[in-house]
Design a binder for these strands. Structure first.
Lengths: 153, 153
DNA sequence: ACATATACTTGATTGTCTCAAGCATTACTC
DNA sequence: GAGTAATGCTTGAGACAATCAAGTATATGT
């Protein structure tokens, strides 16, 4: 299962299309991660480290407990994909930095995660704009529903 | 984290919109599940049991090992959301059936998973059709990429 | 009947995630 | 400035998800 799936009984065609799309996206993401011997969670964290970040920051962005991040970073660190430096400004906190190895692995990962690019490639530029606009409009409608807003914006 | 997130560095606006949408969808799904004291995996399985199904069938649809399903069904069964009957036609296999309790809980779950409905509600019917068409067109483009097709179609 | 395949279970192991407690450091307050 | 919070992170324990290897029971095929 690995990847969350939406309701099987979709009332409208648009709902069905949304579910299919999300499902395909999630599966593709997981496949790309697994291919690089990363779990989804690890790929997720690694992807956010384009610049150094604290543990707290990561936990907030991903909406999970800090101790969860501790574990994930520990595993990434043991593979030398990431390093933990004490923040000189606040010695309680660590700055997590992606190593060159980590940079390279993540670049590979992103390159292999062709889903979004492939999806876009089959749309004209006009259609791409339309899709983006429709998705945003649909999303905007949802504001106010529980856990709907991006916690990592 | 709980919910997979896409790449943070999206090259195009449309990619960004896709990611935001998928992310919001996944988070909403997880929230709805948690609200009903279901894990994402459990909600996922429960949702497929509109009619009886075998374990193997579920495992194939969800793309995971059969032993994984065994565990998940066991947990659902212990809460009386599901029952396992031996299939009279093939006594190796079990038919998993949702109990009335399971039906009720899943109905509640779906009602609380307002994301797709809310998203749609903010689009005109024309826009809904456009969105569905664009999503399908984008998806079609992706066929042939690894793990891109729905394994549970 | 015998061998093979299928459906599921069990046990072991890894990873995710949460909670409760704890340590170190920083910020607040008197 | 000393004492008390609050913050950032870690540790330990426990639940669940997921996979693999091995085992049992039933079906299928020769």
């Amino acid at each position: 299962m690995a990847v969350p799936s939406g309701p099987v009984t979709a009332s409208t065609d648009a709902e069905r299309a949304m579910f299919d799309f999300v499902d395909a996206y999630d599966r593709a993401y997981e496949t790309a991660a697994t291919t690089h011997e990363l779990s989804v969670a690890q790929a997720c964290v690694l992807g956010r480290l384009t610049d150094p970040r604290g543990m707290r920051e990561l936990a907030d962005e991903l909406g999970c407990d800090a101790s969860n991040i501790t574990q994930i970073i520990a595993r990434l660190e043991s593979r030398d994909l990431v390093q933990r430096h004490t923040n000189p400004n606040d010695r309680r906190s660590r700055q997590i930095v992606r190593t060159p190895t980590g940079d390279a692995l993540y670049a590979d990962f992103e390159a292999s995660f062709a889903f979004a690019r492939a999806a876009i490639a089959n749309l004209s530029t006009t259609e791409q704009d339309q899709l983006a606009a429709l998705l945003r409009k649909a999303l905007g409608a949802a504001d106010g529903w529980p856990a709907m807003g991006r916690r990592d914006a």
